[in-house]
Design a binder for these strands. Structure first.
Lengths: 241, 241
DNA sequence: GTTGATTGGGCTAGTCTCAGACCATTGATG
DNA sequence: CATCAATGGTCTGAGACTAGCCCAATCAAC
């Protein structure tokens, strides 16, 4: 860890790829994270292009790519738009090795470490902040949604729960970082079988996290989140070894 | 915090600006963070362009802009290059308000929150990891460097210390996030007067952080880092109110 | 001195990206 | 059935960005 390591950190690539590639990636993330639910519609092209800070031409190329890949169904005319046709694959341990092989073990460790750091940080910060009633309600509602979720909706609502914690801190940087972290482990999570034991365990941990945040105890919030994520990581390691 | 908030988080701009602007920003960060020390030299253009993932033309435009702004001295020929001429301004509370006004209070809160989350997360993760002797040495060395730093070098070595914690986790994503966080508060820190009381206080906190990490106590490491950053934030608030 | 390696300086042809305008389709509404 | 607002589909000219090439300056080494 000499000076050159720092040079690499700060002078890292300015661009992850061209605008088209990055846009495809973003949209795919929105779809896979369930930010736009299956059957739901992306914002109109003109609007979305502005949000993403790119031209409509480039956005359309990306949408067409996703359409051809079977993620979107694009319909013209009023009340038309780009509709999400993707549904998360039936999870199974068989796919997991393939997913891991695709991303590389280094990237896997990187993503898990990153996620641990930013999500624990978010939980800690949120617990240390003074929350409005509205914020507390949002948090409780997300938890309730997750508790009553069908297997079908579980991953999507789990994502919503985790992202809400970051968003509620009011820091868009932190929200973006958590979204990024979640995306990087998204394929892994989708490949893990959902067993009732694990779901029950996770539900208890979710409750503990919310309780700690609502109680304003940063220490406990961090610990609860840490245990929760460690559980997921352990599950992953279990299926891989 | 409804669904649309999540859309905004995930479907945020793909590009922060054009390649030229982002490159200027990056280089400026490297200079202001002291990743390239005053008098030091940037990597050769061809090499740097590859690292940044941009063309040499664009990089050269950015370098020229920084040269004209007085941050760099560019010399041709063998053993030539782009040398850093910038030295951090003499800090004073007078500038602080201006800096804050430039970035906006929302962005300020965002940056501080983000920094708190990622740096605490990094400290926690690092303390929970099994460290090699080399890593422990690096950490101790950074601490010692900082302890024996002149006022001139203090900010630079302080940055190096904080970034090292993130880098030592082995997660380049986390290192990048911490570098980003540091950059966003960099101007603020430079504007804070360095009083001996505060420096002594900070030194004690730095030692506590390192001790907790070396002891493998994530809980204590997180707490120590949190207190340290909270101290800085409080100092800022103090000068602003 | 001469040489040669290293580095910044500059040019060009081609590709990517954009802003803006206009066209085509759809379907709710009257 | 006719209308019209909303939405995707398409084109064009201009500017940004790139890869690759060669030139010019510098200076340690011989």
């Amino acid at each position: 860890m000499d000076e050159s390591a720092r040079l690499i950190t700060v002078l890292r690539p300015v661009r992850a790829g061209n605008a088209f590639e990055e846009t495809v990636e973003r949209l795919l993330q929105a779809i896979k994270l369930g930010v736009v639910a299956p059957g739901g519609k992306l914002p109109p092209e003109r609007e979305l292009a502005v949000q993403l800070g790119i031209s409509r031409v480039t956005l359309r190329e990306a949408i067409r790519a996703l359409q051809e890949a079977g993620f979107l169904d694009v319909r013209r005319g009023r009340y038309g738009g780009a509709f999400v046709t993707y549904t998360p694959p039936r999870p199974g341990a068989a796919d997991l090795r393939k997913v891991v092989a695709d991303m590389g073990t280094d990237d896997l460790a990187d993503a898990l470490t990153f996620r641990m750091a930013v999500e624990c940080g978010a939980a800690q910060v949120l617990a240390g902040a003074e929350l409005t009633d509205g914020q507390r309600d949002t948090l409780r509602r997300r938890l309730a949604d997750l508790d009553s979720a069908s297997l079908e909706d579980y991953r999507r609502l789990d994502t919503a729960f985790h992202l809400s914690i970051a968003e509620l801190t009011g820091s868009s940087l932190l929200a973006a970082a958590c979204a990024d972290a979640r995306l990087r482990v998204g394929d892994l999570l989708n490949a893990i079988p959902m067993l009732q034991v694990n779901l029950d365990h996770a539900a208890a941990q979710h409750r503990a996290i919310v309780a700690a945040i609502l109680a304003g105890d940063p220490e406990a919030a961090r610990r609860a989140m840490c245990e929760h994520l460690e559980g997921t990581a352990a599950l992953l390691r279990g299926f891989l070894s």
